[in-house]
Write a protein that binds this DNA or RNA. Structure first.
Length: 494
RNA sequence: GGCGCGUUCGUCUAAUGGUUAGGACGUCAGGUUCUCAUCCUGGUAAUACGGGUUCGAUUCCCGUACGCGCUACCA
């Protein structure tokens, strides 16, 4: 017998932006599908009409595209990024379009005596919960409508009485969920609520919709957050009621805020889009998230998807939640930024340089100057701001080297100015050449590097910390460099 | 409250019934250097707590504490 083709799915709800925690799940989905040569399906779970957000699905697809994580089946974004199509043999891939299928499954469950109509009002349910809470009882549906004779229930429904359909779960014994990450987890049936599977509006809830679709779409591995572990018994019940072969369940540990609470918007960004917009690179996000909660037992830190997918192993995923460690992400981003082709890097950074600076070659040289100093493209704004100022303020940092005399700085700067003036243009493009030449000039005067280079660097930057004078001269160009030295000289003799 | 899951350096993690408990990020120190960054070297720092089982437990078991999740006609 041939082994079943591995099929995984990403199943977002169109209720907002893509969460960074969800992205990690999709990364694992992708890794697994890639490793097994299987399929990765994108299905939209829009059964909650009240929370539907227009454009959320399109936005979700656009984000996946920017990340380079592209499911090969299901909901598909058109080339222009404006409209949605669906591809694959298991459609439709939008749950609201599968409403009739869900209802048919619910009917079968009803017929098998595995589900029942419930006529309880929201008020009764709310009141019941309040009473239970006040009495410190476990909350949950009391099963009032379980006892209604199915034939009578059918008559009431046909008579137009509002109703929902609930699962008729066992009230004794226990279930054991076999989780790929946690092993066997056992629950008592009596503590599990008769879950609503068809809402009053006729739409299925997640529990029915997702399981029915996962079965219909031949999904073999369900990767989802730990928050679903508690409802896994209900999902197993549905599979078993129909006699379907169970998929592999894998409940992933949560991503956490620095204070160990569930990763949330309150404590920073959780929107994948916003990380992308800030200049976090897809490859850095991938590398970071893939290794957050899982590790191929190696000392390697830098991985591509192709390196990681053969090593991927669900059973080695950690069981405990992981704090989202922004500093490490920054480090990875710096790493990947430096790996990008220079032109690509420059185009990412340009938007963060002053728009009113018209000398594009100058801006470009500034971008190159800070290439290896950035974790994020946006950081260049502050780091380079002095370079775009018309005049520098030299009052904050000393132009003289250590305890040397002011006259010495004037002497060194005057000389440096003439050196720069005499520089031939071929030297202006290369930091190393420039450095050799200037250091030779310093040596020929019998001066020290420190007492000459410090005043020069501060003249060019007015900063106590900055790139070297050589790098600055190359970035500024001859004319701007000379102007800076003149400014500093004027400040000193004042 | 009930049920479930979890707990190795500050953080992400590796490993094992006997190890100097390893790596990375961060941090600190030193080197290179005109300062910064880079780079190199080195250091700091962890098995939550209490009981068992065992010759020996961080590893297996139980309990406690703490954290998290679920407890919807949301997903």
């Amino acid at each position: 017998m041939a082994t079943k083709r591995v099929r995984v799915r990403a199943a977002p709800s169109p209720t907002g932006y893509m969460h960074i925690g969800n992205l990690r799940t999709y990364i694992y989905d992708m890794l697994l599908a890639k490793q097994k040569g299987g399929d990765f399906v994108l299905r939209i779970e829009d059964t909650d009409q009240s929370r539907f957000v227009p454009d959320a699905t399109e936005s979700f697809c656009r984000t996946l595209k920017r990340l380079g994580i592209i499911p090969n089946e299901g909901v598909w974004l058109s080339e222009d990024g404006k409209s949605l199509t669906q591809r694959g043999n298991f459609g439709p891939y939008i749950q609201s379009e599968r409403k009739a299928k869900h209802q048919a499954y619910a009917q079968q469950l009803l017929d098998m005596g595995k589900a029942y109509y419930c006529f309880c009002t929201q008020e009764r349910l709310d009141q019941m919960r309040l009473t239970q809470e006040a009495a410190h009882q476990p909350t949950g549906y009391d099963g009032l409508c379980r006892k209604i004779d199915p034939a009578e229930a059918k008559r009431r429904v046909e008579g137009g009485e509002p109703s929902v359909i609930r699962l008729k779960l066992p009230k004794e014994g226990s279930v054991t969920v076999n989780d790929a990450i946690r092993g066997k987890v056992t629950f008592d049936w009596k503590l599990i609520d008769d879950q609503v599977i068809i809402k009053q509006d006729g739409m299925a809830t997640y529990h029915l919709a997702a399981m029915a679709d996962d079965h219909d779409m031949e999904i073999t591995h369900i990767l989802r957050g730990e928050e679903w572990l508690s409802s896994a018994p209900k999902h197993m019940f549905i599979y078993e009621a129909f006699g379907w072969e169970l998929p592999v369940f894998a409940h992933l540990p949560l991503l956490l805020n620095p204070d160990r609470t569930k990763l949330s918007k309150r404590q920073g960004d959780v929107s994948v889009e916003s990380y992308l917009d800030k200049g976090y690179l897809p490859e850095a996000l991938f590398n970071f998230l893939a290794l957050c909660g899982w590790n191929p037992s190696d000392k390697q830190e830098i991985y591509t998807p192709d390196e990681l997918s053969p090593l991927f192993d669900l059973s080695k995923i950690n069981k405990s939640g992981a704090i989202f460690n922004l500093e490490k992400l920054n480090w990875l981003n710096n790493h990947y930024l430096r790996l990008r082709p220079m032109e690509n890097y420059v185009s990412m950074v340009m938007p963060f340089l002053p728009a009113d600076e018209k000398d594009l070659d100058f801006k470009r040289r500034v971008a190159v100057l800070f290439w290896e100093r950035l974790n994020l493209p946006s950081e260049i704004t502050n780091l380079s701001s002095f370079m775009f100022q018309a005049n520098l303020d030299y009052s904050k940092v000393s132009l003289t080297w250590k305890d040397h005399a002011k006259d010495e700085a004037i002497e060194r700067l005057t000389a440096a100015k003439s050196w720069i003036e005499q520089l031939d243009d071929s030297k202006m493009a290369d930091v190393k050449n420039l450095e050799e030449q200037i250091k030779a000039s310093i040596q020929s005067k019998g001066w020290g590097n420190g007492d000459t280079l410090w005043p020069l660097r501060v003249a060019l930057s007015a900063q106590d910390k900055s790139p070297s004078p050589f790098e600055l001269i190359v970035a500024y160009g001859k004319e701007r460099s000379i102007k800076r030295v003149d400014e500093a000289l004027a400040y000193l003799v004042k």
